[in-house]
Amino acid sequence: MRIGVITFPGSLDDVDAARAVRLAGAEPVALWHADHDLRDVDAVVLPGGFSYGDYLRAGAIAARAPLMQDVVDRARQGMPVLGICNGFQVLCEAGLLPGALTRNSHLHFRNRDQRLRIERADTAWTSAYTSGQEIVVPVKNGEGRYVAAPDELERLEGEGRVAVRYVGGNPNGSLRDVAGVTSEDGRVVGLMPHPEHAVEDLTGPSTDGLGFFTSVLKAVVAA
């Protein structure tokens, strides 16, 4: 099982994401944003960071990188894609996920361990959890406030597209406490919190994040 991790100029958490992939039992494959080569990977992770310094809008320029055209094409055919933090912003900007991430309502960068509720345990990246399960992983962002037009948000809730929700306090003013959303087919998931920073007792607040990376192993085999 080969899981690609894309590095953009300004990516920070690509090495941690690759490490989480390895700990989950898959082979991490480094991908470069400017290539047109997905190197035969079975799934892709877009890591956190500040691609292009958040210029224009967070994730906006990275979403137009050459490799992203390949990611969009393969995702539409069912390849699992996970976007974490800046990666989530890139997926929204690329049109693979609905809504947008904007400046935190309190205008501060927020960095803390965050409790989350898994709302959808049937996506490619969350099947290792149970629906309603609560986990703790780090969250760290300045532009993490999830927004969408009111009728769009209503539609997303109706379709069960909210995959992960903040509980015990909303760190950025996200509408309806949305921490992460999924594509219609459950193959593409994006979230602002960082499961890849919670995969080992030594370095994380828990090992709760590992489930995202073990889930996709089953999703790829089943496909």
Binding site: R103, L107, V147, P150
Partner: peptide, 9 residues
């Protein structure tokens, strides 16, 4: 920003 999107800045 669209009118319905809040603008904390």
């Amino acid at each position: 920003l669209k009118p319905e999107i809040s603008d904390p800045q």
